[in-house]
Design a protein around this nucleic acid. Sequence first.
DNA 1: GTTCGTATGTGATGTTATTACATTAGTCAA
DNA 2: TTGACTAATGTAATAACATCACATACGAAC
Lengths: 134, 134
Amino acid sequence: MTATQELTKNQSLVFDALTRADGPLSAYTILDQLRDNGFRAPLQVYRALDKLLDYGMIHRLESINAFVACAHPHDHSHSHGMTAFAICEKCGQVSEFSDDVITARVREWTNGNGFKPSKTTIEIRGVCASCGTA
Amino acid sequence: MTATQELTKNQSLVFDALTRADGPLSAYTILDQLRDNGFRAPLQVYRALDKLLDYGMIHRLESINAFVACAHPHDHSHSHGMTAFAICEKCGQVSEFSDDVITARVREWTNGNGFKPSKTTIEIRGVCASCGTA
DNA sequence: GTTCGTATGTGATGTTATTACATTAGTCAA
DNA sequence: TTGACTAATGTAATAACATCACATACGAAC
């Protein structure tokens, strides 16, 4: 995988839709946005999303069944760590961060218990600073 | 809420189903198991699940859309901390644990960013020790 | 140009969750 | 006891999320 991944037409369309958006989008929202580009079926979206997830260009937010463009596309600092997400339930904004201490601590548990992790999800739902003071 | 929560008939049936199970169950699996007890519609299950979640007697596993009975029903040690789950993708077994360091670290981030958390999800998917050596 | 792997198109289906509305059962006060 | 209120339940329909199965197109390698 190179710095800038070569994307197919559908993958580009889906990635652009997520990049344009100011927050996470559901697969069906993406589908609706891309109807004018010839998208007809959910699978067109899901297949593109799968690849983009593979490439590490987007994230899936498990707790809200939505997808978001990676906030740090050029930053490989957390490529070996876990990424955590704070999701505002008021405005939908997502903050992405990674924490070495949490990563280490999770790895301690998995090592200690013989568990081979493949994907770790850390999602905090709540109310962001802007919405909390408003 | 007392030590032992008073449950309604449907709540008891759903809770018992989850307690009997040796792993997480989807809402529709629970529904199927309770057909003989008069369950007909998803809502009967979802309503009971909502209450049981409220009472802290069960957990929802966001990454696999399933529910599991709390592994430490009489242990209030992690009632103020976050609960993490290791989910084996081979056998479905779920290990539940809580970690004060992770809890503290997450709280540091939320405090530092003015984020008011309501629910935090930590789920590790992978292969458990038993399945890894098999 | 044939073969092969990858990407795409399309319809149908499977799975998870909620909305809307009707009914039942228990509690409490007048 | 009645009425009013609240919680729980029953049921049908629908919404939201995801995959399967199969057909077609496209590009690279030989």
